[in-house]
């Protein structure tokens, strides 16, 4: 494993930020790290990057314990913090040259590494622009180029598309998609489509604990859904109230109701569908169609974090 974090714990006073989180990233893997705001994602990322220490647990990066051998462990990682702090007075190439040297890239490789990082992060066209004059999208990608510049084995990317407009998100996502084969990537985000687009595996955390960890396809398959074409969506939603806790219902396009089984449900999709249809028909709602559908990760995520929050 490129990254092994075991039983990470962190407290801020009486507040427990992390309560025993395990994270593992293999070489060449993109691991989505999901959770609602305040779940502990950034705290975990800051611990993994060595910026803050954990109150308990252990982090090993590329075989080096972060506590015992921080220099070797940090030399194997590239970190993009959530706020993307940069030095605005420097030009992009100056900044990357400084960062490459700081990370121990030998002088003879420095120019080629910087050029490669700029190409991967798509910032070559602003290479000589002062960072302070760049748009947020460019600054985000300069931060990404910084994370890439020393060719680290492990990339820790904390909310890399936060605050970007849709076009910028697409651009950054294209960059992320190309990173997997050469690096192990831990991608922290609350944008689920991002994980679906680029990650192989995902872990979901909430209230400082891991609530799910599986391949993205498994997470989606675990909680199936179906679309039911109905005569009245309002009445249909009202009839679904007794199903609360078993399904998540939303109004879909074309006069349909989308019904997804909650995470971890042991019930069969078809059995629930029959019950729901029977309830609709019994309640006077006409049913035009029932179409099985694999759920979006958003619903899995919501169901996982909601069920956790409802626990005492």
């Amino acid at each position: 494993m490129l990254l092994t974090a075991e039983k990470l714990e962190k407290r801020y006073g009486a507040k427990v930020a992390l309560a025993g989180i395990d994270v593992q990233v293999a070489a060449g893997e993109v691991l989505g790290f999901l959770g609602p705001n305040g779940a502990g994602k950034s705290t975990t990322m800051r611990i993994l990057s060595g910026v803050i220490g954990a109150d308990g647990g252990r982090v090993v990066i590329d075989g080096h314990d972060l506590a015992d051998d921080p220099i070797a462990a940090k030399a194997a990682l590239g970190y993009l913090p959530e706020a993307v702090p940069l030095y605005p007075e420097l030009r992009v190439v100056e900044y990357l040259a400084f960062r490459a040297e700081l990370k121990g890239v030998l002088r003879k490789y420095r120019v080629s590494y910087i050029e490669e990082a700029m190409q991967k992060a798509r910032v070559t066209d602003v290479a000589y622009a002062p960072i302070g004059t760049l748009s947020k999208g460019y600054r985000q990608r300069v931060g990404l180029a910084d994370a890439l510049v020393a060719k680290p084995k492990l990339l820790l990317l904390d909310e890399p598309t936060a605050g970007l407009d849709p076009a910028q998100i697409v651009e950054v996502r294209e960059v992320l998609r190309g990173l997997g084969p050469e690096h192990g990537v831990l991608l922290s985000t609350h944008i689920l489509s991002e994980v679906e687009a680029v990650a192989d595996r995902a872990i979901v955390i909430d209230h400082g604990k891991v609530v799910a960890a599986a391949a993205v396809t498994e997470l989606r398959a675990a909680d199936p859904a179906f679309l039911i074409g109905v005569s009245s969506t309002d009445v249909a939603l009202a009839l679904l109230k007794p199903f609360a806790g078993r399904v998540v219902a939303t109004v879909a396009e074309g006069g349909a109701v989308r019904v997804a089984l909650v995470a971890g449900s042991a019930e069969g999709r078809d059995g629930v569908a029959e019950e729901v249809v029977a309830a609709f028909v019994g309640g006077g709602v006409g049913v035009r169609s029932v179409v099985p559908e694999r759920p979006r990760l958003e619903e899995v995520f919501l169901a996982l974090t909601r069920s956790r929050a409802e626990q005492p």
Partner: peptide, 14 residues
């Protein structure tokens, strides 16, 4: 103040 200390603390330096 800028938050750039994170860049330095995550770098392989003492």
């Amino acid at each position: 103040g800028r938050g750039t200390i994170e860049l330095l603390l995550s770098a392989p330096i003492t």
